[in-house]
C-alpha cells in the first residue's frame, strides 16, 4: 500500500536561514499523524512543501504516491487542506462559503449542505463568516477542507483559541474524520491534544525532525510522564518568539 505521505530529505533556505534542513518522514494511509514543534521550528514550511504550496530547494514529497510539486490538479482533488480559520470569502454566509469551495471541486450544493450539517453548523448556515464564534469558524473551515471527500487531510492548529468545550467537541469531529478512513495530518501546540488524537507524532526543531513515534513510546523512551515533557526535553525550555 502506498504511503499517504512520503517526504524525502526536504530542504528550504531563506537567505542564510535553513528553515527546513533535511526532513524525511512517512505517514501511512489511515494514520492520524501529528507534527509538533515550537514556533520557528520549520513546521509551517515543511507542511507547505509537502502540500505543494512551496517548491523545496532539495528533496521531494509524494502525496498518495504522486509528487506534490509542480502543482497537480488531479492530486489536489484527493487532498483537503484547512488553512487557519480566516481563509473565508468576505461577507458570505457559512452555506455560501462551503458551496463556493465545493464548486471548485465540482461537488454539488446538496453535498456541501450535508457537510455543513455533519460539522454541526446546519443552524448557522445563514450566518456570515465574521459573526461565527471561534469554534464555529474552525468547524466551518474543516468542513470546507472535507467537502470533496479527500483521502488525506491537513489541519493547521484547528483548536487554537477555542474554549475547552469547543476543543473537546472538535476532537470528536476529528476522530470521526479519521475513523471514516481518511489520513489526517495535524499541527498543534497542545500536547494533550496530540497525545489523545495522534497515532504517531514527529517532534521538530531548528528545521529537523528530532523524534518520530507513537506518543506513549516516545514518553517511555525518554522516561517522561507525558508528551508535553517529551516535547520540552527535546526542544528545551527557553522562551521563543
Amino acid at each position: 500500500m502506498t504511503a499517504a505521505i512520503s517526504a524525502r530529505d526536504l530542504r528550504k533556505r531563506y537567505g542564510d536561514v535553513h528553515a527546513v534542513d533535511g526532513v524525511s518522514f512517512e505517514v501511512r494511509a489511515g494514520e492520524f499523524f501529528g507534527l509538533l514543534g515550537p514556533n520557528g521550528a520549520g513546521k509551517t514550511t515543511t507542511l507547505e512543501m509537502v502540500e505543494g504550496l512551496r517548491r523545496p530547494d532539495e528533496g521531494r514529497a509524494l502525496l498518495l504516491g504522486e509528487p506534490s510539486w509542480p502543482r497537480n490538479p488531479g492530486l489536489l482533488r484527493r487532498v483537503g487542506v484547512q488553512l487557519q480559520a480566516s481563509a473565508f470569502f468576505e461577507k458570505l454566509t457559512a452555506r455560501e462559503q462551503i458551496r463556493t469551495f465545493a464548486s471548485l471541486y465540482g461537488v454539488a450544493d446538496e453535498r456541501a449542505d450535508a457537510m455543513l450539517a455533519e460539522v454541526g453548523l446546519a443552524e448557522k448556515a445563514g450566518t456570515r463568516e465574521d459573526r461565527l464564534s471561534g469554534g464555529q469558524a474552525q468547524r466551518l473551515s474543516i468542513a470546507c477542507a472535507l467537502v470533496h471527500d479527500p483521502e488525506l487531510v491537513f489541519l493547521d492548529e484547528p483548536t487554537t483559541g477555542l474554549d475547552p468545550q469547543a476543543r473537546r467537541n472538535l476532537w470528536d469531529l476529528l476522530r470521526g474524520i479519521n475513523a471514516a478512513g481518511r489520513t489526517v495530518v495535524l499541527t498543534t501546540h497542545y500536547m494533550d491534544e496530540a497525545e489523545v488524537l495522534c497515532d504517531r507524532v514527529a517532534v521538530m526543531d531548528a528545521g529537523r525532525i528530532l523524534r518520530v513515534g507513537p506518543p506513549a513510546e516516545l514518553a517511555a523512551e525518554l522516561e517522561a510522564d507525558s508528551l508535553e515533557d517529551v516535547f520540552l526535553q527535546l526542544t528545551g525550555r527557553e522562551y521563543r518568539e
Binding site: E51, G52, L53, R71, P73, G74, L76, R77, V79, V81, L83, Q84, S86, A87, F88, F89, E90, F101, L104, Y105
Partner: peptide, 13 residues
Amino acid sequence: KRILRRLWLAPVR
C-alpha cells in the same frame, strides 16, 4: 485572508 493559498490548493485554474 489566504484565499489565494486556498485556491492554489484547489483544482481550479
